[in-house]
Computed example of a mutant assay.
Amino acid sequence: MIEFLFLLLPVAWGHGLFMGRNSIKQKDQNAKDSLTVKYSTGLNYLLSNQQDKAMEYLLEALKVEDDTVEAHFAMANLFRRRGELDRALKVHEYLVRQPMLSDKEKQQAVFELGRDFYSAGLYDRAEKLFLKLLKSKMYGCKSLTYLLHIFQSTKDWDKGIALEKAVLKSKDKKLKHVLANFYCELANIAILQDEYIKELELLQNALTLDPKSSRANFLMAQVFENSEQFNNACRCYQEIFYQDQEFFPDVIDKMQQCYQRSDNNDDFYPFIKKVFDKTGSTTALIKYLEYVELTSSKEKAEEYILSALNRRPTIRGFKHFVKMQLNDGNDDKTNKSLDVIKELVAAYLKIKPRYSCKNCGFNSTVHYWSCPSCHDWEQLKPVRGLEGE
């Protein structure tokens, strides 16, 4: 009898193992079935616009199976795109609190939560989250970008400059460009306070970060003008031409004033001729016509502008040509007719945008260093073509 019982022990053990495995499989199957039910119910609520109930079921599903994390990220991003930031916040806050998330998923949850706060205008909360991610390989540069956006919106230029080491480490040219403009903003303040040494230091820092910053040289020229260093101011204006030919027409008048007060007055018109030959700028053309008329004759100037307009017609150039035709040699009727044409053209140009953003296409009649639409720096340039330069 005892021997028979010993023979049954392996059978009993095998039966117990079989039943145990079946029990575990059954539990797993029950959990998956529960997960499916929760998701199905949640999606049904979502489709029927009962979003609060939908979130309750969909969030509950995360407790059962951590493989649903990506689905929750997708759901939260959908809410954010639809402008339902309160729901996006709820999902991302829930994800941040989950202990089962990997480091990568946890960083993603923190970053997305920061984006939610940023979109909601809660900059202080967003700032704290993005600062936590600065050392992250995946989200460090992205967080740095958002931080600079925040400081630009709040005009906390010093806070942005405090991140200079992180910006330099990122080696991102766009971030350097943004930070250079932060230095320019501080330089503007220093100019108003007449702090000469500080102005130059700030602008030199801007040019070190972004050697192509025409704004930094524009402000540098202003600093030199204020201290009557007109030769240095002229040099800064020349640098702008090599940095940003599209923006250069805006500085021609200021440049001429500096040359007139410098030791190099004779160099101005040859330089403007070079600008016109290279860019075809209408502003440069009109300015150079002064020299042609002064050194040759009005007839030569008229021939020059007609030749230029035949090659590259612009309405501003035509307006100047009509202006040149107004003289004492005409009868009153002719002068009145020409004057009417000139005024009509001037009225037309007045309602047309003078500047256009290279990044987003925003149009404006006045210049901004930061585009009012996309907030990108130094992207508003004088319009080119028939109605512009």
Rank of each mutant, 00 (worst) to 15 (best):
E84Q: 12
T295I: 04
K352W: 00
L380I: 01
E228A: 15
P249Y: 06
G83T: 06
I191E: 04
L186G: 02
N363I: 04
F230V: 08
D332L: 11
T314S: 09
C371Q: 01
R82H: 06
L179Y: 10
L17N: 01
I161M: 10
K350C: 12
A162V: 04
V11K: 01
F321E: 00
K323V: 05
Q50F: 07
S307T: 10
K165D: 15
A190I: 06
I272L: 03
K155N: 04
P10L: 05
R311K: 12
L46Q: 06
A347F: 08
A233C: 06
R125V: 06
K342I: 03
I305Y: 01
D250C: 09
E164M: 14
T145A: 11
L58S: 09
C236M: 15
S143V: 13
D263M: 12
S364R: 10
A347D: 15
Q204D: 14
L294T: 03
A284G: 08
F151A: 00
K173H: 05
Y146A: 08
K106T: 12
K90Q: 09
D158T: 11
H367A: 00
K38M: 12
L203V: 04
K63F: 06
V322H: 05
A187Q: 02
S214T: 00
F224R: 09
Q108D: 11
P382A: 02
L163F: 07
